[in-house]
């Protein structure tokens, strides 16, 4: 049961990473790492939306906040592995690249792709986040109390 769960956790992590990549980035990394395999569409890239929900008072009952654009597709490669993509935005080419990575991560190429696609992408996104966090930290107020009066 634990193995089953872990397997999902791993795939969930890479799909989540691919979904948030900047435009064209997954394609560039994928093409730099490997020659794209032949594939068959199970679901051609399709642009749609997802309703984003929030919670009243941050923790209470859910409400519909508004939608985001999402592109999804599914394909199968020769080994029989099925790759899915659900990525933010409206780039069909990016969805195709993300689904190919998802399929290839289920083959012997997994470790190579982890090193050459997923890790660089994860580092780039982390770096961007760290830079913003550091800029925010520099705007943190350092209160000090001034002593007033004689005593």
């Amino acid at each position: 049961m634990k193995d089953f769960f872990d397997e999902h956790a791993d795939r969930k992590a890479w799909m989540s990473l691919l979904a948030k990549a900047p435009n064209g980035r997954v394609s560039a990394l994928l093409d730099g790492a490997i020659e794209r395999p032949a594939f068959t569409w199970l679901r051609a890239p399709e642009i749609g939306s997802a309703m984003v929900r929030g919670r009243a008072g941050a923790t209470g009952a859910p409400f519909n906040l508004g939608e985001i654009t999402v592109t999804r597709c599914a394909l199968t490669i020769e080994s029989g592995a099925v790759g899915h993509a659900y990525i933010q935005g409206r780039s069909k080419a990016d969805a195709e690249a993300a689904a190919l990575v998802d399929a290839l991560m289920q083959t012997d190429a997994a470790e190579m792709l982890r090193t050459n696609v997923l890790e660089p992408l994860r580092k780039e996104l982390e770096q961007a986040k760290a830079t913003r966090a550091a800029k925010a930290a520099a705007t943190k107020v350092e209160f000090f109390t001034m002593a007033r009066g004689e005593d």
Binding site: I47, S49, M51, V52, G54, E67, A133, A136
Partner: peptide
């Protein structure tokens, strides 16, 4: 917006985990 198919609804976002600017 009205021309797009809806793929689903998200889980409620966790604003407690926000990367705050």
């Amino acid at each position: 917006r009205t021309t797009m198919p809806r793929f689903g609804s998200s889980k409620p976002v966790d604003t407690g985990a926000m990367a705050c600017d």
